[in-house]
């Protein structure tokens, strides 16, 4: 047992604290395993195209579906548009054409004010952490309760401390982001994304720059959020081992298209030469 397990006991994602203990797999989870298509669709992309310049379409017709309670992995090479997909899912950028639904609502036609309540149900961990460098770690982590629930820093402190402890950053409360290492910043970003207990969490390469123990803890956290609180996660990663540990299903993105959509075992059994290459490369590392 690793040291991290002790603090993991303290998680209270929803309102109650201890009640989650021993709850184990939820009904939804069982349902999802039996018949995935019956769970509610949380994120849905239909024929999504996106071009930043005239010359090249980054996404050329992407279809994807993420159901409640599942952990979806997005794999793909550098620059293939993985981060872009997460941005689109939050309405941070707009597609050139196509439909994006979040919790059943078409978000491509909404303005910032209309997007706000929907975004509140989603947490995002950006690739580089994206901590606000003029605020302390505590103010960063407590941003959501302070901005959206009118809390003061003092009121939010217990919650912030709990989340910081959860990601193993108890001592970082008063530090500035510039005083954190890359891995610490990433973990603070995870704490910030999950503080308001969102239903969906989007992780952009959450494990890069974190030590192996930290990685396992973070991956276990993602699994636990799913099992106990039915949190839906979309995780961008390029580490196959991590993907296997947390993922229910995977997408592989290449040249603007989803070239694979299925389970881990299906990916391993594939005959597609590109995917075989991709796997071989990953396993070689």
């Amino acid at each position: 047992m690793e040291a991290g397990d002790v603090s993991e006991m303290d998680l209270s994602y929803g309102s109650g604290s201890g009640e989650a203990e021993g709850k184990g797999k939820s009904e939804l989870r069982t349902l999802l395993e039996r018949d995935p298509s019956r769970a509610e669709t949380v994120i849905e992309f239909r024929d999504v195209h996106l071009a930043f310049s005239r010359e090249r379409e980054v996404l050329a017709g992407v279809d994807l579906t993420v159901r409640r309670g599942e952990t979806k992995i997005i794999l793909g090479g550098s620059g293939e548009g993985k981060s872009t997909i997460l941005r689109l899912a939050l309405g941070l950028i707009q597609p050139t054409r196509g439909s994006i639904r979040l919790f059943g609502e078409e978000i491509t036609t909404l303005d910032e004010a209309q997007l706000k309540p929907i975004r509140h149900r989603v947490g995002m961990v950006f690739q580089g952490g994206a901590l606000f460098d003029s605020l302390t770690v505590a103010e960063n982590v407590g941003f959501c309760p302070m901005e959206n629930h009118g809390m003061t820093l003092e009121q939010a402190e217990p919650l912030i401390r709990r989340r910081l402890k959860y990601v193993g950053l108890s001592d970082a409360y008063d530090l500035m982001p510039s005083e954190l290492s890359g891995g610490m910043a990433k973990r603070a970003a995870v704490a910030r994304a999950m503080i308001c207990s969102p239903e969906v969490l989007l992780f952009d390469e959450p494990t890069t720059g974190i030590d192996p123990i930290g990685v396992r803890r973070l991956l276990r956290l993602i699994n636990r959020l799913r099992d106990d609180f039915e949190v839906t996660s979309v995780v961008v990663t390029h580490i196959l081992k991590d993907a296997r540990f947390i993922g229910d299903s995977l997408l592989v993105l290449r040249a603007g298209h989803i070239v694979f959509d299925g389970t881990f075992d299906e990916l391993m059994a594939t005959k597609d030469p590109f995917l075989r290459d991709f796997i071989a490369e990953q396993e070689g590392i």
Binding site: E112, R119, C144
Partner: peptide, 17 residues
């Protein structure tokens, strides 16, 4: 520099304007 380090998007994602 906030823009290129995704802090602007993070702000919007967290409900800030």
């Amino acid at each position: 520099s906030m823009k290129v380090t995704d802090q602007i998007d993070a702000l919007r994602a967290l409900g800030g304007d």
